[in-house]
Nucleic acid binder design. Sequence first.
DNA 1: CATAAATGCAACAGCAGTGTCGCAGTTCAT
DNA 2: ATGAACTGCGACACTGCTGTTGCATTTATG
Lengths: 191, 191
Amino acid sequence: MTRPLRADAERSMRSILEAAERVLSVQPTASLEQVAEAAGVARTTIHRRFASRQALVDALALAAAAQLRDAVDSAHPDTAPPLVALHQATANVLRTKRSWRFALEQADIPGSAAFADQVALAQRCVELLGRARDQGVLAADADLEWTRRVFYALIGEAIHGHTFDAADETDPDLLAGRIVDTLLHGAGPRA
Amino acid sequence: MTRPLRADAERSMRSILEAAERVLSVQPTASLEQVAEAAGVARTTIHRRFASRQALVDALALAAAAQLRDAVDSAHPDTAPPLVALHQATANVLRTKRSWRFALEQADIPGSAAFADQVALAQRCVELLGRARDQGVLAADADLEWTRRVFYALIGEAIHGHTFDAADETDPDLLAGRIVDTLLHGAGPRA
DNA sequence: CATAAATGCAACAGCAGTGTCGCAGTTCAT
DNA sequence: ATGAACTGCGACACTGCTGTTGCATTTATG
């Protein structure tokens, strides 16, 4: 139970977390000094809120994991038709992951504070894929866990290329279409 | 032109590079002290061969990139039937990438000394995919560059899971089959 | 076997990042 | 407006890694 932060403290907090993502996504080993500068804050202020560098990264990962969960939720993954949900969730995740690349990488590290959240999310992903399989969107004998990993890998790959910006490489909906299509049918000839 | 190394120096060299891969793949920020210990060598010996930490990493990446090139070459990617070459190259690359995970990650970083090699290799990959397309293994309208990226992503994903060891997760040939199958047909129902 | 090369060891300087503290000045809450 | 919370600033100690040097010792090579 920490008592509520004052309004300005809350603002500093956000500035720091956003700056941390910005700076660390470019250079994961950047110093807290650089983060502080990007946040428009003194380095000591960071240390007041976060006991250590690790604590900052954990908080960042936790916040990003929550964002990601919301992004998935808003695609109604367990009520909408599987194919629709899959597409929508993919587009939403792309948007979120683009903005929180570093944080979400951290969240996937076993030791991380947000790791449990990510595992839970993966579980929900498998459930969605299960519904997809039941409705014939996936092959009846599809390995759901492998399919999930492929799905994740495709998303990760799409984020990478995102560094450059061609028109069709930037739009999350176009990309999502490509990803889902590849996930379902691959690159081989269509029957 | 550096004159040839003495036999024992050559051995030290190999020990250092192998130890570096072993240690840095577990902890990329590990100190040269730890690398030296793992190599059974004094830290100063490392500094004699490699002017800086970066020089060591570059040499490591260069060696690994060469290994990877050989692994691809031995699959005869531009003479064997595309599907066969694809499978064989995948299996070989999996074996190599498993042993040189850290080094090959470094090689893919734009600033790296081995980056040019990796770009050239990607080019050859696209050529193989082009042959595959011409022979109907890939769809006639397949985007070769996107296909290559998907291919790479699948391989990367397969390497990840490799941390744990179930029987079918460890065998490169089984994995290669799964990867190529997924690349060509995805997870959807087969016509 | 004689020489040159390579190594281990110990010590040193330098540097950068982390984390802590006290204090003076400001901003918010009531 | 008054007290409490928050911040910036400067300073400090501490730690760990890097890179270098000198010297004694071992090891390969011709």
